[in-house]
Each structure stands twice: as structure tokens, then as C-alpha cells.
Amino acid sequence: MDAIAYFNIILRLAIWFLLTADFSLANIIIGVTIAFLLPRRWTSPEPLREWIKVLWKTVVAIPQAYIEAIQIMLFPHNEEEIVREKVKPNRTPGLIFLDIFLITFTPKTIVVKYHQRGWYEVHRIRRKISDQ
């Protein structure tokens, strides 16, 4: 197995544990079994460098999510907008999924729609800065 295959299995296990929130031995066995049994797409493998970038962005997104949650609780965020964000070129379905996950993970943004033409529609909330 190459490094990308390991990343795919780790990603599947991470999603399993996020969904179940159960680290019992039985659940670990079920998660590992499902991670190996889910069908794989045999497309061109993502470069290892892209996976490492996305995994680093995931690590950075965790404290960012807490900061944004605190900001929402302390200050009113009453402006909304839907913006289009361009998908990075040559993204495989696995990396597109992770991009959508990262955008949606933070409390101030959520992906509303993915366009096959290479765009995400992202709903954002932000603080309205009063004009004085």
C-alpha cells in the first residue's frame, strides 16, 4: 500500500469516529472493517504534498473553529452572504470532500453547493460594522 492509501483509510476511520463518538473495541473493529470494505476509486492518486497541506489545514481549523464560536457568542453576527469560491485545479473527489469539510467545519461558513464547473457556493456570516 502506498502513502495515499493509508491516508484514505485514516480519513475513513476519522470520519467513522467523528460520526459514532465511540472508542470501544467493538466500534474500532467495525470502523476498521468498514474503512477497508468501502469501495475505492482508482483514479489518479493525489500527490502526497496536497494531502499533507489539507491535513495541516485541518489541524489549524480546530482552534479557528473554537475562536469563531466564541466570537459568535460574544458579538452579534447579523450579516449574511453567499460567495463563490474557486476549487483548486486538478482536485480529486477525496480532496474536494476535504475542502468542503474544512469550509463547513468552522461555524461562520458552510458549503451550500458544489458546482462541477469548479466552484463552491459558501454561506458566510459576519459582524456588521456600523458606519459612524
Rank of each mutant, 00 (worst) to 15 (best):
V83T: 06
M73R: 08
E68S: 02
T58M: 15
T58S: 12
V87W: 00
W56F: 15
T92C: 06
F75Y: 08
R91C: 11
V111W: 15
L95P: 03
P76W: 05
Q64N: 04
A65I: 11
Q116S: 09
H77A: 13
Q116A: 12
L48D: 03
E80S: 13
L74F: 07
L48P: 04
I96K: 01
V59Q: 05
L48C: 06
I100Q: 10
V112Y: 00
K88D: 09
L74R: 12
I103W: 13
E79T: 14
K57N: 15
T58V: 06
I103S: 11
Y114F: 15
I82M: 07
R91W: 15
V111A: 12
A69L: 12
L48S: 00
G94P: 02
K57Y: 15
K57A: 14
F101D: 06
L102I: 09
I62Q: 09
K57H: 15
P93Y: 05
V112P: 00
F101K: 09
I67E: 04
M73S: 07
N90S: 14
L95F: 05
Q116G: 08
E79G: 07
P47E: 14
T109I: 02
F97T: 01
T106S: 01
V54N: 07
K53L: 10
P93K: 03
T92S: 13
R84C: 03
